[in-house]
Amino acid sequence: MKKYTDTGKKDTRSGFGVGLLKAGQANPNVVALTADLKGSLKMDAFAAEFPERFIQCGIAEANMVGAAAGLAITGKIPFIGSFAEFVTGRVYDQIRQEVAYGCTNVKIASSHAGITLGEDGATHQTMEDIALMRALPGMVVLNPCDFNQTVQATLAAAKYNGPVYLRFGRPSVPNFTPEDEEFVIGKAIVMNPGTDVTLIATGHTVWESLLAAEALEAEGISAEVLDIATIKPLDEKAILDSLRKTGCAVVAEEHNHAGGLGEAVAGVLAAQLPRPLVFVNGEDKFGQSGTPAALMAAYGLDAAHIAEAAKKAIARK
């Protein structure tokens, strides 16, 4: 089992803040917009260094999306930031027309995604955002797994010419990927090679899957862990290569079943390589108030549930 060291718990949204500042330093066209969530999105450093390029929109997300599209038309590279629900569900039609159909180079910075938003409860915990963004033609969907990867994903998003949905989270979580590993859009990362089962994970569930792989190893089960940091376009080859070897898989995500990574993987396997597949996700439910860790356990998204699911998948081979 490949060893990963948590170099100190950090929130992925802080990774975005660092990435945004670096992207801003590298390219004067990068601008940042927020709907009254500068602090929550960790945009303070960017705003302090580039006050003219930081655009406060107030609590008016729909206008923020349109204004960002307009800025993109003039050649700017706008990052719009808010909580995941408010930059997806609340403004789906604006993103569809102004950004996706309108072919504007807008980056949607989506923080506090998933159930780990925690105590604020279900109004703020979107478990549907990946489904919405995946559905849009041409939208790139990124969901990095830790602080370091989020820094790099932000830089990659800034360099990429086209709409990007960049999803990250609120809580402090282990930081374990290499600090300066270039983020390649569309590439899955084999976090741990294995032979008995593939654990396909994205975002916060990558670390949980590594913990699950460790627990499985202690029971003599060899689990391959794939980090799907790009959900769209999906690295089908990496998934098929792994499944040809292991013969079964678990897909773990902090998102509901409908339209999530699990369904995307199921589509690939059903069409090209039918194999036993077990889903670990929020199913068809809303969240509730609680600490991030308690919610991950209660909704069955933690390492223990992933390891359990792996055994089910193996049993169905």
């Binding site: 729909a62 204004a67 960002a68 599209a69 307009g70 800025l71 038309i73 027309q97 504007t104």
Partner: peptide, 25 residues
């Protein structure tokens, strides 16, 4: 044609964004 439109109420935001881009430039 500078931008897609049709779903109503959105164009003024895009126009404001272009206007702001011109100010920045």
């Amino acid at each position: 044609v500078f931008q897609a439109s049709g779903s109503l109420g959105q164009g003024l935001s895009a126009a404001a964004g272009i206007a702001l881009g011109k100010k920045l430039d």
